[in-house]
Each structure stands twice: as structure tokens, then as C-alpha cells.
Computed example of a mutant assay.
Amino acid sequence: MAKHRIYTMSFSSVYPHYITKAEKKDRTKEEVDEIIRWLTGYSQDELEAHLEKQTDFETFFAEAPKLNPSRSLIKGVICGVRVEEIEEPLMQEIRYMDKLIDELAKGKKMEKILLTPAPL
């Protein structure tokens, strides 16, 4: 079976769209980066290095230092498909990220997006 086209796309070609989507709703690049770091375990420097190298999605997720175990709690529909029902592991990781960015653009609080308790 042929690889899905998005797997070979560079992450850096999609990243500006994440930023634009967030900024249209008065959210920030920093919040987008925080979501990506939370999901993948990359540091900010590592994230920026992947953007600079134009790493493809397959490599970006394969080299992620520590995929967040709480990502399996991400639920909902993205592109008409429930993320929790996606069987292809890499596609599910990509859609998890898409779903988190969507939640940000919808105005959700970061602690809800990142599935963490609100500070006391």
C-alpha cells in the first residue's frame, strides 16, 4: 500500500497554517508550540530544528522524544473522522495534533486542551 501523501510532506510546510489558524482567533504561536511540545516531547530548540530541516511528518513523529501518553484521551472529529477510531498510528498522531490546534482556535483554555488540571 502506498504511503499517504501527508507522511512525506514537510512539517514546516503545514506549521504556518497552524499558526495562522490560531492567530485568526487571537491565539499565539507560543501556544501552538506548547501544544506541539506537549504532544511530542520536543524542546523548543528541537522543534525549531525540525522546522529548519523541513523534516517530513513521518520522521517528525518517529523521532519525537516522548509522545505524551495522555494523547490517547484526545477525542472528537477532525476531517469528518473520529480521531480515537483512526487505525493507522501515524495518521492518528497527525490528527491528534490537528485536533489540538482546532481546540486552540475554538478558544478552549490551554489546561483543557493539554488535558491537565487547572492551577489552584
Rank of each mutant, 00 (worst) to 15 (best):
L100C: 01
K25Q: 14
Y42E: 01
A22D: 03
D56A: 02
M110N: 06
W38V: 05
Y96A: 00
Y42T: 01
S10A: 11
T40R: 04
V14M: 06
D26C: 09
H4D: 13
H17A: 11
V32L: 04
I35R: 01
G107C: 08
R37A: 02
D56G: 09
E85S: 10
S70N: 06
Y7A: 11
S12Q: 14
Y18F: 02
T55N: 10
S10M: 05
S72I: 12
I19Y: 05
N68W: 01
P89M: 05
Y18M: 01
T8H: 06
Q44A: 14
E87W: 15
T40M: 05
A64G: 01
L114W: 14
H50D: 03
K112F: 06
R5V: 14
I74A: 12
E111F: 10
A64H: 08
V77R: 07
I94D: 00
P119L: 09
F61W: 06
E30P: 05
A22I: 01
Y42V: 00
F61V: 02
R95M: 03
C79P: 13
R5L: 08
F61H: 00
N68A: 08
L39I: 10
R27S: 00
A22V: 02
N68H: 08
Y96R: 07
D33P: 05
P69T: 11
R37D: 09
L73S: 15
R82H: 10
S72A: 11
Y15N: 00
H4W: 14
L120G: 10
E88G: 09
I86H: 13
E93A: 11
L67G: 03
L120I: 10
T55H: 02
L100H: 07
K109F: 02
L90M: 05
E23F: 13
E30Y: 04
R5P: 04
I19L: 08
T40W: 07
S72F: 13
D98R: 04
G80A: 15
D102M: 12
I36R: 06
L115T: 02
D102Y: 10
L114T: 12
L51W: 08
I35V: 04
K29L: 05
P119K: 13
L47G: 03
V83W: 01
K53A: 09
K25N: 07
E111H: 12
E52C: 10
T20M: 14
A64M: 04
V32F: 00
T20V: 12
I78V: 13
